[in-house]
């Protein structure tokens, strides 16, 4: 070992000894094989931490119950028990703005019943979109930058876990809270709708087939698209606050798209829901695949130039 001259002040043109990208360990290429056990470990540990964070999940629970329980209960109960024919008549005029295909599906013999049915089945559709996207975006935004801020990214960077395992583990950990809230909320909403509107339209009717399609086929890919973008952001920004701000910008247009698409799925008929879902899945898979590259060890470390 020789004593060396002081370091040069200006970096020379970088000559890489491998085909690596600047600043990154080639983690994105390191994992041809996926270790599913490690991936689940990452997801499970993230979820466990989330479960410990009462300050996080309590507002989210309130959000879910607000959209799935409180608002529908008040509105549907008011409509079915208002008894004022004139007012009901005015509200029921909104049904006329629905597409004919949707109007044909409306059940109920009375204006109250028809209005309540239309609200429950068609107009509350965005509820199922807003809640999971909001919750999952909030979780996903802080997931990678949070590791960096807490210093735990250093542990992950030195661990044998591949970038792909970390990325997918964190994606799942972000997806589950939103989707779980939706599933529970959807169940609660179904009960409320059936209890309040059911007697007006001849019995329990909810969820309708279109709702099942939306919850199981259309919503998940939109959630995946949103999360793949949010995770990319989380890997690149310097603070959780910045990630939250930026993810809002990303998720808002996505919420609007998902809103319109889900509304279309419910209003439309035939193969439209399947087509919308299929296109969304294709975009989601592509976006998720591209998103893997965003997680690198240097980004977990938070070194300058790595972000």
């Amino acid at each position: 070992m020789t004593a060396l001259a002081p370091p040069t002040k200006q970096p020379p043109k970088i000559r890489r000894t491998t085909s690596q990208t600047n600043g990154d360990s080639p983690t994105t290429r390191e994992a041809a094989r996926m270790n599913w056990s490690r991936m689940w470990t990452v997801a499970r540990t993230d979820l466990k931490q989330l479960a410990q964070a009462k300050d996080f999940w309590l507002p989210m629970m309130i959000l879910g119950s607000f959209f799935f329980v409180i608002i529908p209960t008040i509105l549907l109960f008011t409509i079915t028990s208002i008894g004022d024919v004139e007012v009901i008549g005015q509200i029921s005029q909104t049904i006329e703005v629905l597409p004919q295909a949707a109007q044909d599906q409306i059940l109920g013999d009375t204006p109250e019943g028809q209005t309540a049915y239309a609200l429950a089945v068609f107009l509350f559709a965005p509820v199922a979109v807003i809640v999971p996207l909001t919750i999952s975006t909030a979780v996903g935004a802080s997931t990678i930058v949070g590791e960096r801020e807490r210093g735990t990214g250093e542990f992950l960077a030195h661990s044998p876990a591949a970038a792909k395992e970390i990325y997918i583990g964190k994606l799942i950990a972000s997806l589950i809270p939103g989707y779980l809230t939706t599933a529970v909320g959807f169940g609660a909403y179904s009960i409320i709708v059936n209890l309040i509107v059911g007697p007006e339209v001849g019995g329990w009717f909810f969820p309708t087939f279109q709702w099942w399609v939306m919850i199981l086929w259309v919503l998940p890919p939109f959630l995946a698209i949103c999360l793949s973008l949010v995770l990319r952001l989380s890997a690149r920004v310097r603070s959780t606050a910045a990630a939250q701000q930026a993810s809002g910008l990303i998720s808002l247009p996505l919420i609007m798209i998902a809103y319109s698409q889900s509304t279309g799925v419910l209003f439309g008929a035939g193969s439209l829901p399947y087509v919308v879902g299929a296109i969304a899945w294709a975009i989601a898979l592509f976006s998720l695949h591209r998103g893997v590259r965003s997680v690198t060890r240097s980004r977990l470390l938070g070194v300058v130039g790595g972000i």
């Binding site: 000559r15 690596q20 990154d24 360990s25 080639p26 390191e30 060890r297 470390l301």
Partner: peptide, 19 residues
Amino acid sequence: ALSPHQGSVSVFGLDPGQP
């Protein structure tokens, strides 16, 4: 966790920056 821009690293005879 980081890769060198110049030079090489060998640990246990392996390059830690590679797969």
